[in-house]
Design a protein around this nucleic acid. Structure first.
Lengths: 253, 253
DNA sequence: GCCTGACTCCGAACACTGTACGGACTTCCG
DNA sequence: CGGAAGTCCGTACAGTGTTCGGAGTCAGGC
């Protein structure tokens, strides 16, 4: 290492050699995909409140504002991550018409478990308006539309059915995810958390007989199983309702 | 005004007379109810991103941190506001068993329109875990439980039915509210926004035949009516599914 | 009268946030 | 050898939620 750094006048200590030679363009060093997938990691690990551009930057060995050349906004970044997550959902394959119910159940369960794997999705679902134009969401929508179309719903009802199904699944799963998030925030198991919550719940239910009965029946059940039963029950109701449109008289009212 | 302020050594300008005599205790000047209702105003007017403790404080002619004596947290404050909003929902009155379907429809519509009147609820729904112990939420739950109980569902299914219904309603309404929120943020009408979004939507739907057909069918409909039809369709499906549990054989599987 | 808590309000401060901007640097194209 | 384009980032700004210490005011007890 020759001492040719005397050309620079009065830099305190850092010579050219200690300087990290930024801007090297072996690879662009930062890519949209990398940013999105690291953001996903961060969200999964620490939740939506912990995702900050600075933290994301340091996790990528990058400056705080370096992401803005690849992503316009934090909001846009979140949109990208959300679509990436939707990519994990199993899209129903076009199959025989009499498969439709099984296929729908599989898709619904896949959607549920995907959200529960990324519970921060719940906090973010209510802020995404149109944004649902990402490729993975489109693929999923297309698959579900095709599913109900081939199942034999009356013309123009397929999209209504898709909306019904996804609304139900998102609604119940959002609540589950929020529940699991508060669990995690307090670092307790589902049982522990329910137990510590019990007195407050009973007091809140005071004067509400139906609720008290309901709570009592919940008391000694496995919370996770209860959640699954709930999900399956509602899913069955929705599918029963839809199935009646198939096999019934097919009237419009 | 006598010039007796020369007793105070070197205070710049403010004399005793200009000082605002804070701490007067005519009324406590700030109450939890007042804070909650002003927060609600602010949320309705400017959305969830615009609710800050400082802004809320100035709107109450109070200091930024004065709310913390009445409310532990911003999160707790939001919980209170959310429960207040649930208080606007029409609770089904206990009536004749054959009224159940009408009563449920009314309650579902009331829930929907309440959320759409306060669209920020969507952004916040995914973050509230257990918090659903507020008096108004309890009252609503109790009412719906009683409704399904008297309707004649098999024992232990009432709460499953409540969960199914509310999940569906919250799911679809959350999506609607998010859509309306992005509308408002861009200051456009539903039609305008759809129009300006059209090219992107068609491009995104490229290669997805079902979606393209669906979009085309949407093109010349009134968006608001479309949303209402969607809601009613799904609601009908859910209720059909539930009704079958009533009139059917009543088997457990 | 006076003292003692309890309560309510608030200014200042801390640690953080998203992001606009300008500059430094590299690479590519002519 | 120019530019031009693209990438990275330090700094700065305007805000955020919340803690803390203090100041003021009240009710009750003596």
């Amino acid at each position: 290492m020759p001492a040719d750094d005397r050309a620079q006048p009065k830099q305190p200590i850092p010579s050219v050699w200690t300087r990290p030679r930024r801007g090297r363009r072996e690879q662009p060093a930062l890519s949209r995909e990398q940013i999105v997938s690291t953001a996903l990691e961060l969200l999964d690990a620490e939740g939506v409140a912990a995702l900050s551009m600075r933290k994301l930057g340091t996790r990528l060995n990058a400056g705080a504002t370096s992401m803005y050349t690849h992503v316009a906004n934090k909001d846009e970044l979140v949109e990208l991550v959300v679509d990436a997550v939707y990519g994990e959902v199993e899209v129903p394959a076009p199959g025989a018409p009499d498969d439709w119910r099984d296929a729908t159940v599989r898709c619904a369960h896949s959607l549920r478990s995907t959200i529960l794997r990324h519970p921060w999705m719940a906090s973010v679902a209510g802020e995404l308006g149109v944004t649902q134009l990402g490729p993975n969401v489109m693929r999923l929508s297309e698959g579900m539309l095709a599913l109900f179309e081939t199942a034999g719903l009356p013309a123009g009802e397929a999209d209504l059915a898709v909306s019904t199904l996804t609304s139900y699944v998102m609604g119940i799963t959002t609540a589950e995810a929020a529940w699991l998030t508060t669990l995690a925030r307090h670092g307790q198991s589902e049982r522990e958390w329910m137990e510590s919550l019990w007195p407050a719940a009973e007091e809140a239910a005071d004067g509400h007989p139906q609720l008290l009965v309901h709570y009592a029946s919940l008391r000694h059940k496995d919370p996770r199983e209860t959640r699954e039963e709930k999900f399956d029950y509602g899913l069955r109701m929705v599918l029963d309702g839809l199935e009646a449109r198939l096999t019934g008289a097919g009237g419009t009212d």
